[in-house]
Design a protein around this nucleic acid. Structure first.
Lengths: 250, 250
DNA sequence: TCCCGCAGTCTTGTATACGAGACAGGTAGG
DNA sequence: CCTACCTGTCTCGTATACAAGACTGCGGGA
């Protein structure tokens, strides 16, 4: 059942969630086809599915790119999460002890990851908490929606995150769990809303890697805070340059 | 910008929303390609996008079909809508008078349509109300999500709707608008939840065209007992794999 | 030296070709 | 008469071929 397409799709998503793809990275159909050892058709279909999930976008006859959400889109994504997850908290009812235990363990894992140096797994775990919460509700439709939204916000935090308040986030998760355990749903909802607000507030929506930032700053001083180290241009396809006989890594 | 694919996708969605496709209808790639005068490739890509939106599904080497949500999936879809739209009502804040006026006009249009004999436009309008409400919130992400969910529930009501309580629905919409106008968000949320419950309750989740129903009833009496109206059975995936007769539309 | 134009190359966009699995209908055997 | 098999046809799944737009780099002219 896991068709090759699904594998490609999952592989790209995993790479995105793991932070191995920066927003704006170009994903050439031919390159990916070569990497996966399949034809462009499969790659293309996987990319189109990712497009409807808001992970990648295509620019006509230029290529596929990991999405670079604008500040507005970033806000919209967090707002959507706030609406949905707040509603979820209010409707979730009693969570089975078993599930609650798993969530606890997840938060534990977050704490451990925060101690470690691995930023990637940390970000991954912090996002996963929300997905697992959705799973606890037992509604596959909602779970899928929140999965997509979480992937999107992961990209956003990769673009804009200034202060990495991972510890704070994890603490929030614990407190939300407390409220759920106590059965105080309105409190959980309130905490969730505040948590998401806090995460969004932790972003620096002016920090975007924007090649035009300097220019804009010169022309209209004050619109973009000059971030010294952000003068990086669009990251160009890393890795060994191809143009060789296509290396099948099957 | 409006690529041919988008047109195909939109065309199919429109047909679904208009009720011109029954759930379970087969959509052959070749047939559609012939109808639209394009190659199978474009049709296929449009169908895959519809697949991620939950409108169609593919059965390997058999064909594409308009989804036939199971009773469990139907419940999940309504529950998801309840969670999201409830959260939406609580967060929507003050609606601009202009927008409110448009929504009023929409409800008026619903009322008019209910008098008329056109079931199609009626169903369409009733669903559109919720989409417009999402638009009023001004969040494109949420709007898109609710668009998809609404399309899905439209399919569901086509499968299961027993009592066509259109008038009641439209009245509900009006009352919800009242609450919003008064700025009583918790009330609006409560009304919305009740409204969606009512709509779901109006479905007969045992009424599905299931060729195996009788057989199953004979073999395992009591499984598909037809309780007159209060049948709030939440069957856990009875068995999604019914070999249904294929509606050829050649 | 700088600017404009032009061609080459690379990309996606679309169509077509071919293969494998699934279903249907007929046929032979019991 | 019924059952089991077998073959033909139709479908999607995947690969490949061709077309057309977009960016790049070079060269000529002011």
């Amino acid at each position: 059942m896991p068709s090759e397409q699904d594998q490609i799709e999952a592989s790209i998503i995993a790479a995105v969630l793991a932070g191995r793809f920066r927003p704006g990275t170009r994903l050439g159909e031919s390159v990916l086809a070569g990497l996966y050892g399949v034809s462009r058709t499969l790659v293309r279909e996987a990319l189109m599915r990712l497009q409807t999930r808001g992970i990648v976008q295509v620019s006509a006859r230029r290529g596929w790119f990991i999405v670079e959400p604008s500040a507005g889109e970033a806000h919209a994504a967090y707002e959507a999460r706030k609406v949905i997850e707040t509603g979820l908290m209010l409707s979730i009812g009693q969570i089975p002890p078993e599930t609650l235990k798993h969530l606890r363990e997840h938060v534990e894992a977050e704490h451990s990851a925060i101690q470690g140096p691995d930023v990637t797994s940390r970000v991954c775990l912090l996002g996963d908490f929300h997905v697992h919460l959705a799973e606890a509700f037992g509604n596959p439709v909602l779970t899928e929606i929140l999965q997509n939204l979480t992937a999107r916000t992961t990209l956003i935090s990769m673009l804009y995150q200034s202060s990495d308040a991972a510890e704070e986030s994890s603490d929030d998760h614990g407190i939300i769990l407390d409220a759920l355990e106590a059965g105080d749903l309105p409190l959980a909802a309130k905490l969730m809303a505040e948590h998401l607000d806090r995460v969004e507030a932790g972003l620096d929506l002016t920090a975007r890697t924007d090649p035009l930032a300097d220019l804009r700053d010169i022309l209209v001083p004050g619109t973009s805070d000059a971030k010294p180290s952000s003068a990086k241009t669009v990251p160009d396809e890393p890795g060994p340059d191809h143009r060789k006989p296509i290396n099948q890594i099957k």
